[in-house]
Design a protein around this nucleic acid. Structure first.
Lengths: 343, 343
DNA sequence: CTGTTAGCGCTTTCAT
DNA sequence: ATGAAAGCGCTAACAG
C-alpha cells in the first residue's frame, strides 16, 4: 500500500504538497498538480482512513444501533438498516452496525474508542437506556422512533395522524362501524409512543367522523389473536371495516378473518397503518406505509447536523423533531361496505 | 477524551507500561497494574481505535456488502446483515455496511482506505464483479451464497439436498404427483447457483422416489404467477402437493391457490424450501428454513480465517466451502394427500 | 520489572 | 507556490 510519502517522492514534491493537492485547500500550480495526480494513479494511492482520523478527529462513520428483536420485526429493522446506510453514503458517511443485546455497552465502546462521529438509534422506547448513555457521553445522536420527553433530535411517522387518516378514509368510504386493532397490549402497557399516539388518532377520528370505532388492543401472540378477532368481528351489529396498526401478525390475522368466513374486501374492508413498503402480504390492501426511506434520510440528516453543531445544540432547533405526515398508498382506496350495511 | 499519556502520568508510570497492562503482553507487578487500572477508571480512558489501527494495521472491522434489492428481498438481506453483525462481534469484529449500488466501488474504497480487514459478500452471483474486485485487491473475503468456479471461501444452504429432502418427505407422506415450483425463470436463465442446484435436487428425488415431479420455473412478477399456478395445479391428473423454492411471492401464491378453490392442506400440501425463519407467512407449513444464523456465523468464521491466513490460503483448505445440510422444520410434517388420491 | 524512543500516515502550522 | 517539521495516540523494539 502506497503512502503519501512515496507519492511525493515519485512526483518530486513534498508530502504536504500531495496532501494539499488532495484537499484542495491551497493553490497548487497546474504542473505540480498534474505530476501529483500522475504519481497517485501510478501507485494506486489511497489515503489511509486511520491516519486521517487520528490526525483530524473525524471518522466519517455513523453507528447504527439496531434493536435485537425476533422474527418479522427483524426484517423491518434490516430494511431500516439498509436505508440508513444508503442515506449516510449520500452525506459521505459509512455505517457501522451495532447489534449488541445491551445496546448501551456497544454504544459506549464505539463512542469512546472514536469509531464513529455520531449515532442513529432505531426503535427507541420510553426511558430507553441508550438515550442516557449517549447523553452522558455527549455523543451526537438522532433517533428513529419518537419519544416524548427526550430532547434528542428524532424522526417518526406521525402515528396519530396516520391512524386518524386511515379511520377518516374508511368512514368516507361509507363505513359506519369499524374495528381499530391497535398495537399489542404489552406495547400499550409499556407506553410506547406509537401505540399511544395511534389510540389517540383513532379516538379523534371517531369523534370527527361520527363513525363507531371499536378500539381493541392487539396481542403479541398469534394464539390469542383468533379469539380476539372472533369477538371483535362477530359482535353485532357487525363492523364492516378493520383498521390495523399491529401488523406483525398480519398474515395470521388474514387467515383468521378467512376462517371466520369473511371475505376481504367483499364482507370486510381491511386498512393497514404502518405497513412495510413492498411487503407482499400487504398486497393491494388500502394502507398507509411506513416511510422507511424518508425516515432513514431524516435521521441521518439530523445525526450529521448534530455532529456539526455539537450534541447539545439541537435542543433549540425547531426542525429537530420530524413527524412525517402519513399518506395513503396510491391506487388502493378503501372499498365501500357491503351493500345494505352502510347504516 | 483521555489518552494513554495522561493515564501514565496519573498512575506515575510510563505510557508503554499502560499499554502493556492493557495488552497483557508483558509481566507487570500487581502494584503497578492496580495503579494503572485505577487511573484508567478515574479518567474513563478508552484506547483510540484510529491510533491502534494506524500502528497495528488491524481495524477489527469487517465490511458487509449488502445487495441492493427491492421489496421483500430487502427484508431477507436485512436479516442476514443483523446476523452477520452478531456473529462478527463474537469474534471481536465490528461490521461496516456497504450498500452501494455498484458494490465494486464501495469495496475498493473501503479496502484501500484500510477501513476493514476483510469482506463478507452477500447474495453472490455467477460472475459477480465484486469477486474480481476483492481478488484484485487481495482482500480477505468470504461469500454468502455459493458460486461454483470461484476459489473464495463460501457458505450456502445445500439447495440440491434441500429440494431433494423436501420432495422425498413429500413422497414419503404418500404424494405420487407433485409440482415443484422452482426459482424464477430469470434466475434460472442467469444460471444462479441455488436455482440450478434446486432443479437438480428435484430431478434426483423424482428418480429416487418414483414420484411424478412436474418442474415449473416460477416468475418474478406477481401477475404471471396466477396463470402459472392455474396450469400447474389443474392439469389432470391433479397434483396433490406443491413444493416451492421461490418464496418471494409466497403470500400471493397462497392467495392464488385459495382462489383456485384449493384448501391447504386439505386439497393440496404446500412444502417450502428456504423460507425465512420466524416468517409468519410460512406459518406452520412444512418447510426447510434458510439457516440464516448458521450461514452468517460460518461466513464470519471464514472471513476471519482469511485475515489470519492471508487471502490466498483458503484455496487449499477443505473446510472453506461450507454447504449446510438442510433440515425439515420440526413440528410440521408433510400432510398426506386427500384420501382416495394417493395413487 | 519498567522506561525511553521511534514511527505508523496524515494534516497543518510556520517558514520561505 | 512550495517545503520542513511537529504531532495526533498508540505499540513494540531496545535498553536498562
Amino acid at each position: 500500500m502506497a503512502t503519501i510519502k512515496e507519492v511525493a517522492a515519485l512526483a518530486g514534491v513534498a508530502p504536504s504538497t500531495v496532501s494539499y493537492v488532495l484537499s484542495g485547500s491551497r493553490k497548487i500550480s497546474d504542473r505540480t498538480r498534474e505530476a501529483v495526480h500522475a504519481a497517485i494513479a501510478e501507485l494506486g494511492y489511497y489515503p489511509r482512513a486511520s491516519a486521517r482520523t487520528l490526525r483530524g478527529a473525524r471518522t466519517d462513520v455513523l453507528v447504527l444501533a439496531v434493536p435485537r428483536r425476533p422474527g418479522r420485526a427483524r426484517a423491518v429493522d434490516g430494511c431500516f438498516a439498509i436505508e440508513v446506510s444508503d442515506a449516510a453514503r449520500a452525506h459521505g458517511y459509512d455505517v457501522l452496525m451495532m447489534t449488541d443485546r445491551n445496546g448501551v455497552d456497544g454504544l459506549r465502546r464505539i463512542a469512546r474508542s472514536g469509531l464513529a462521529d455520531a449515532a442513529v438509534l432505531m426503535a427507541v422506547q420510553e426511558q430507553d437506556p441508550r438515550i442516557d448513555a449517549v447523553s452522558e457521553l455527549a455523543f451526537p445522536t438522532a433517533l428513529i422512533g419518537h419519544d416524548d420527553g427526550c430532547a434528542l433530535p428524532a424522526v417518526d411517522l406521525d402515528w396519530e395522524a396516520a391512524v386518524r387518516l386511515a379511520v377518516r378514509r374508511t368512514a368516507e368510504a361509507g363505513h359506519r362501524r369499524m374495528v381499530f386493532l391497535a398495537s399489542a397490549d404489552h406495547e400499550i402497557d409499556s407506553r410506547r409512543g406509537y401505540a399511544l399516539r395511534g389510540l389517540r388518532g383513532a379516538r379523534k377520528a371517531a369523534r370527527e367522523t361520527g363513525a363507531e370505532v371499536r378500539i381493541h388492543p392487539s396481542t403479541g401472540t398469534a394464539e390469542r389473536l383468533g379469539a380476539l378477532l372472533r369477538t371483535a368481528l362477530t359482535t353485532r351489529p357487525e363492523p364492516t371495516a378493520l383498521v390495523v396498526q399491529h401488523l406483525l401478525l398480519l398474515p395470521r390475522l388474514l387467515e383468521e378473518v378467512a376462517a371466520l368466513g369473511l371475505r376481504v374486501p367483499g364482507d370486510l374492508a381491511v386498512v393497514l397503518v404502518g405497513s412495510l413498503p413492498d411487503d407482499p402480504v400487504s398486497g393491494a390492501l388500502p394502507r398507509i406505509e411506513l416511510p422507511v426511506g424518508r425516515m432513514a434520510q431524516e435521521a441521518v440528516r439530523l445525526a450529521v447536523e448534530a455532529i456539526d453543531t455539537g450534541p447539545d445544540a439541537p435542543r433549540d432547533r425547531g426542525d429537530a423533531r420530524q413527524l412525517i405526515a402519513p399518506v395513503m398508498a396510491p391506487g388502493a382506496p378503501v372499498p365501500p361496505p357491503p351493500p345494505g350495511r352502510t347504516g
